[in-house]
């Protein structure tokens, strides 16, 4: 089950696989253990459902990736756990520069998007600062 799940995960975009792959495999393995105790028929039904779900998920993720206007699973959204305060500040500056560039080029949908992202990153920075009680060093 674990091996098949890992194989199917290769059908996903690399960004998604890196962010969620190990978790998905672990979760499926845990559920498989549970389904195993309910008999062969239950296990077969569970396996079919999981594999179908994974395949459909791969299709959905590629569709999202291909249709995303602003990039798919961009680092500002998904690397939060690894980000520290200077890193978040650097990303906010990048977003501001991107927004200014978009406005200068009259690309207002993109500017709006950068603005949304910047607001989200600022909220994260505030959370990080308050969690670490780092306001004095801000």
């Amino acid at each position: 089950m674990r091996q098949t799940s890992m194989t199917i995960l290769w059908l996903y975009p690399a960004e998604y696989r890196e962010a969620f792959g190990p978790e998905i495999v672990d979760t499926i393995a845990q559920r498989a253990g549970e389904a195993c105790l309910q008999g062969l028929a239950a296990y077969a039904a569970f396996a079919a459902g999981e594999f179908a779900g994974l395949l459909l998920g791969a299709l959905r993720e590629w569709t999202t990736k291909w249709t995303a206007r602003d990039g798919y699973m961009s680092p500002p959204d998904f690397a939060v756990e690894a980000a520290d305060v200077p890193d978040l500040q650097r990303r906010i500056q990048q977003l501001i520069r991107g927004m200014e560039f978009a406005i200068a080029n009259h690309d207002f949908p993109k500017a709006r998007l950068y603005s949304d992202r910047e607001r989200i990153m600022r909220a994260r920075l505030d959370r990080l600062l308050s969690a670490g009680n780092l306001y004095q060093s801000r």
Binding site: A19, I28, E50, G57, A58, V80
Partner: peptide, 19 residues
């Protein structure tokens, strides 16, 4: 299914509704 769950979690992370 696990695939459905993680697809939804990815979208919710993107919307900043969960972390």
């Amino acid at each position: 299914s696990t695939g459905t769950l993680y697809g939804a979690l990815r979208r919710l992370l993107e919307e900043d509704w969960i972390e």
